[in-house]
């Protein structure tokens, strides 16, 4: 049975903008993206919204709903109180294009800076074999749908625009971790570049990336902290320091 929903939608572009109140019909079982589409169809024909699969798998409809970074297609309207006004804004860490659409090219630029998997020279591409337990470890990271909610919520760039040039963000720390944990990857310096070029040391483990991940990837516990520990292995480990391995490894 339809009811009326009070919705506030941010409308504007890089020059100006603000929250606009609308009232819209909502049916049982609908998600926030359904409601936005109804507003677009009935009241705001030029409302810009990015979406694609409506199934939580493409990562396109990332936005902030009542201040929290979420996928609009996976946010049930019924999860809010009936009398509550739902506020929908674009991602606040990225440059605005129009209405609910932001420019997420920051993440694509960072993706290009991560060196790809380096295959062992002695193995032909078809000859590589991995045990299931080695595959399983990185399987979790492969669930990433690149919605960039983790990039959006990370305060390192969300609250400090100037850090964007030196910080890759949680999405790319899981990519680096996946590669560094790959048994066949031959690139040797991922730990050091993670720390010195991609800004791993800027992360202060406040776990917001994990909290907002729609795929429930344990970004902090399974990727960022293990990478920080791997950096400690090569830079700050007491045993290695005392044995002089650290200095030798640096020379290598």
């Amino acid at each position: 049975m339809a009811r009326k929903l009070n919705l506030r939608i941010w409308r504007g572009d890089a020059t100006d903008g603000g929250l606009k109140d609308v009232q819209v019909d909502v049916n049982e079982g609908e998600v926030v993206l359904d409601v936005i589409h109804r507003v677009q169809a009935t009241q705001m024909g030029d409302l810009a919204v990015r979406w694609n699969c409506k199934a939580g798998k493409c990562g396109s409809c990332s936005m902030e709903i009542n201040g929290k970074p979420r996928l609009a297609c996976m946010t049930q309207v019924s999860s809010f109180a009936e009398e509550e006004t739902i506020t929908v804004t674009p991602l606040r860490a990225f440059p605005i294009i129009k209405d609910l659409v932001t420019d997420v090219s920051f993440s694509y630029k960072k993706a290009m800076q991560i060196p790809a998997y380096e295959h062992p020279k002695e193995l032909a591409p078809g000859d590589a074999r991995m045990e299931q337990i080695d595959v399983e470890r990185s399987q979790e990271f492969r669930k990433c749908i690149e919605c960039f909610l983790c990039q959006d919520v990370c305060h390192v760039v969300r609250d400090h625009e100037e850090n964007k040039k030196s910080f890759a963000g949680p999405r790319f720390f899981i990519r680096i971790a996946e590669l560094d944990m790959h048994p066949l990857d031959m690139l040797k310096n991922r730990k050091r570049t993670a720390q010195e070029e991609h800004g791993l040391g800027m992360c202060n483990i406040t776990k917001c990336c994990t909290e907002v991940c729609p795929e429930h990837i344990r970004i902090t516990d399974n990727a960022i902290i293990p990478m920080k520990e791997r950096v400690v292995d090569i830079k700050y480990d007491p045993a290695r320091m005392f044995s002089g391995l650290l200095r030798r490894e640096k020379r290598d």
């Binding site: 390192v156 992360c203 950096v231 400690v232």
Partner: peptide, 25 residues
């Protein structure tokens, strides 16, 4: 999460004193 912090600058655990967090081990 998603609540703006009050600090003007942020360098995380890249320099003293917070680089000492690496002494956890």
């Amino acid at each position: 999460c998603a609540v703006a912090e009050p600090h003007e600058k942020y360098t995380g655990e890249t320099r003293a004193p917070l680089i000492m967090q690496n002494a956890h081990r």
